[in-house]
Design a binder for these strands. Structure first.
Lengths: 186, 186
DNA sequence: CCAGCCCTATCTATCAATTGGTAGGCAAGG
DNA sequence: CCTTGCCTACCAATTGATAGATAGGGCTGG
């Protein structure tokens, strides 16, 4: 149960942080959810910063894998792009949660540096993926792929935030549709 | 110094919340900044929820006044729309802060109900203002003014969040420009 | 083969710091 | 003299973190 406990902690911490942020993480609640004592969490993650960094890193890795899978499943780059917003939609469907890194971005000033680094890496990975699909699909000239990718991602993060504030997935769906109408999303 | 102290508390709390959120607010730091004791804050705002609600309400009122002023100063609705992103930009310039209500939206699950109500009211006021300008300027058909207004606001909030995560106003500027290129913003 | 040892993972118990909140006093001024 | 506004002095709960004990598994030397 050792490696499994560590995984369980990471999973629980991720769920908690997607709903309450880094500041909302606390060892006792986490331990209770996993079924161990808080001191045991310190064994696997000495400090809260260590835990936060591990959670963010794992989140980033999972997201990268998820994007690769999306690209592999989709018939072409354009189809993959069209399905990109689904990832953020899923978070809302799961207990009205939001993208971990969007939450952490808000908490910028209170984040340990290693955690912030993972947040930025997550965003860069998303932008890179989006830019690649945009270029491949020819949605915009290659020279504009990266700025457009950034705009897409920021807009989607904003849509998720607005939807979360009202706890309504429909808000998200309407916003995404609005972005498409306006020509921001393919 | 009574009414003035209350105002000073509200102002300090607003600055703090724009950088650390509702959860990051705490009576002692606030008191120290204002130059009084934490018990005195409880005199003006009995509970933290009261303080949070008052801060959010004041923020919403100030924003509404600011929007009216923007509209009054601008030669026409389109010019007012074009200057709308400046408000969010100013927050970034002031200590890399962000829109209070965007932060609170993230903290949705931990917000006292009166605070959340103010957050939603702020957003509705912004959407209403944007929709009015959009309709008046004829940027989109009147029937699409409101969804477009929501899309604009969400996208701008997202841009501010991304810029904050990197503590670079330039990120915000690039994103806004990207939105204009894509046709989301006028 | 097995006794001794160490490493892993967890526990109990406790700490110091932080934090929201309360009780009661005190000074000024209308 | 009573209200307003602030203060001192607490309190209880929460939280990140540490110290030290323990149980079990596996490896090693005799």
């Amino acid at each position: 149960m050792s490696a499994s406990a560590k995984e369980a902690i990471l999973a629980a911490a991720r769920r908690a942080a997607q709903a309450h942020g880094y500041g909302g993480l606390n060892f006792r609640d986490l331990a209770a959810e996993v079924g161990i004592k808080s001191a045991s969490i310190h064994y696997h993650f000495p400090t809260k910063a260590d835990l936060g960094a591990a959670v963010a890193q794992r989140y980033r890795e999972d997201a990268a894998a998820s994007l690769e899978a999306l690209r592999a499943e989709a018939p072409d780059a354009l189809a993959a792009l069209r399905r990109y917003p689904e990832t953020f939609r899923r978070a809302l469907l799961t207990g009205n949660r939001m993208c971990l890194c969007s939450y952490l971005a808000a908490e910028h000033d209170d984040l340990p540096e290693p955690v912030l680094r993972e947040v930025l890496a997550f965003m860069e990975a998303n932008v890179a993926w989006l830019a690649r699909q945009l270029a491949e699909a020819g949605v915009v000239p290659a020279s504009q792929a990266e700025p457009r990718a950034r705009a897409m991602m920021a807009a989607i993060a904003g849509a998720q935030l607005m939807a979360r504030s009202r706890a309504e997935v429909a808000v998200y769906d309407t916003l995404i549709e609005g972005y498409r109408q306006a020509g921001l999303l393919p």
